[in-house]
Design a protein around this nucleic acid. Structure first.
Length: 485
RNA sequence: CGCGGGAUGGAGCAGCGGCAGCUCGCGUGGCUCAUAACCACGAGGUCCCAGGUUCGAGUCCUGGUCCCGCAACCA
């Protein structure tokens, strides 16, 4: 089985933040889970580098657009390393391959492309024309700080309207699955109102930081449309075997701000090319900090590196995957983060590992023999992952962790150990604990790969190899802190 | 009548027609294998308001009220 998963590609006008970090994590879980099932996986992420905003930022920094993009793109690449993201490829829209293949895609779309004059309000920040009906009247005044520009341009247009009903039908039938349901309803309502054709090029004289339109040296491709093409170009569209094997994508992970691009424009492009749509579009929400939107002016921007630094990588992955709701906006606060770390990771999981290892060592001389992972029902976890409900998947896994702690308290191995004649029963109980932990470790593979391996390393051989220090050392204990490093 | 999300014990959330549930926090007890960890029990709720449908309504319908966002980098 082939499995293809993508994130959106990040626009390189600013440094990475935790919202995008979460998107990477979610896609990473899907990729790791698929690999664990034995599928062949291609998992791609990357950076989107053309367009006026990048050109503008670069000019401000006194750099060429390419040099500027190189720099910021590198930050995103570092982010994937920082977060242990298992992406197979990292595409940049300035890659020669992308530029070449984007031109081929354009040609493939040509039957739905026509030239027309466009006059309208242009939002520089969003890099898009704003329909008269949606434009903010205040911003039509030139002295407004975010004033629209009145642009009149000769552009190429794409017949988006032509595909409106087909897309709607495919979403309604479930052939193209948009999750969660609120996002699906949202896009269906957009489709019910009807899509208009969109401008997909810019005159080169106004902006030359883009990919030229094939056969028209005076125009470059509109950055949004060109960026979407990455999902195909990264597979080597049209001739490479990977494209033939891996398209359509199993899941495309995007943020809710770009739902329309991925649930309407991108599908229309695919239909125009005669290609199937992605099977699933998972739209995640946003992260607030202490209930407030992250913003530099409030001064509450959290950088991924800062959070990773506190407890390390796996707790970061854990928190954002479990405590930011997969289908809703969620909140980050250092208090909640510490609480989750102490209660759930250190006390519940870490301690379960610790007490089990200690008892095996103390009562059985460190050996339990060959243990196979327990067979508790893992269907709820698998189903949650297939619905991109990462929070729920971890809830389910934690039911097992709690269940194990309950089991230990019920069986009281330390009582059994007092009776030397009961060694068999004792072994049985401890073996069962180890089996539970091995299954938990298995289930954690996509979410917390390091932790999963650490747990396996302790128990897998049948002879306990204790963890150096502790699995999740408590932070607020001074001695634990020094022991950690 | 712009659009979307929301209102459920102190906090955060789930439930979406059938005995109000989970986590945290709080209280009490138990335990001693363990990272002052673990386990059990308990207190705490007019499920925003008003109507309606129904044998039965957080749950469905109608009409209100109130909150949040319009979205990730400083425009």
């Amino acid at each position: 089985m082939k499995y293809y998963v993508t994130t959106s590609i990040a626009y390189v006008n600013a440094a990475p933040h935790i919202g995008y970090a979460m998107e990477l994590l979610e896609a990473d879980v899907l990729a790791r889970a698929a690999r664990q099932r034995g599928e062949q996986v291609i998992f791609c992420t990357g950076t989107d580098e053309h367009g006026s905003k990048v050109a503008q930022k670069a000019a401000e920094a006194g750099k060429t657009p390419k040099a500027f993009a190189d720099e910021v793109s590198e930050h995103f690449r570092e982010l994937t390393k920082l977060l242990g993201i298992s992406n197979d490829r990292f595409i940049r829209t300035t890659d020669a391959g992308h530029e070449k293949r984007a031109a081929l895609i354009w040609k493939g779309l040509e039957k739905d492309i026509y030239k027309a004059k466009y006059i309208g309000w242009y939002d520089v920040r969003q890099e898009e024309f704003v329909p008269e009906s949606q434009a903010d009247p205040a911003r039509m005044k030139p002295d407004h700080p975010q004033a629209y520009q009145r642009l009149e341009e000769e552009n190429y247009f794409f017949r988006l309207s032509k595909y409106n009903d087909i897309i709607r039908e495919k979403i309604e039938s479930g052939e193209f699955q948009v999750i969660p349901e609120t996002r699906r309803n949202e896009i269906l309502s957009v489709l019910r109102e009807g899509l208009e054709d969109i401008s997909i090029s810019r005159p080169k004289e106004k902006l030359d930081w883009g990919i030229p339109v094939p056969g028209d040296a005076k125009q470059v491709m509109y950055v949004w449309v060109e960026a979407l093409m990455n999902y195909l170009t990264v597979l080597g569209y049209p001739e490479h075997q990977d494209f033939k094997d891996y398209w359509p994508a199993n899941v495309q992970v995007v943020g809710k701000d770009i739902t329309r691009f991925h649930a309407a424009i991108w599908p229309a492009m695919l239909l125009s090319l005669g290609l199937p749509l992605a099977k699933q579009l998972y739209v995640h929400s946003f992260i607030t900090v202490n209930g407030e939107k992250m913003s530099k002016s409030i001064g509450n921007v959290i950088s991924p590196a800062e959070v990773v630094k506190k407890f390390g990588l796996d707790p970061f992955r854990y928190y954002f995957l479990r405590h930011i709701p997969s289908y809703n906006d969620g909140d980050f606060s250092w208090d909640n983060y510490e609480r989750a770390y102490n209660n759930e990771l250190a006390n519940e999981l870490g301690n379960a590992v610790q007490r089990t290892a200690a008892m095996v060592q103390k009562y059985l001389g460190g050996a339990v023999g060959n243990v196979t992972p327990a067979q508790h029902d893992d269907k709820p976890v698998r189903e949650a992952i297939s619905e991109c409900r990462f929070d729920r998947a971890l809830d389910e896994i934690w039911d097992q962790v709690r269940g194990l702690n309950q089991y230990i308290d019920e069986e009281k191995p330390w009582e059994i150990a007092k009776d030397p004649g009961d060694k068999e029963h004792l072994t049985e109980v401890l073996t069962s604990q180890v089996a539970d932990l091995l299954q938990i470790a298995d289930l954690l593979v996509p979410f917390m790969p390091e932790t999963s391996e650490k747990i396996k390393a302790v128990f897998e051989s049948g002879v306990i190899k204790p963890i150096e220090g502790t699995l999740f050392p408590k932070l607020d204990k001074p001695d634990a802190d020094t022991k950690k490093k």
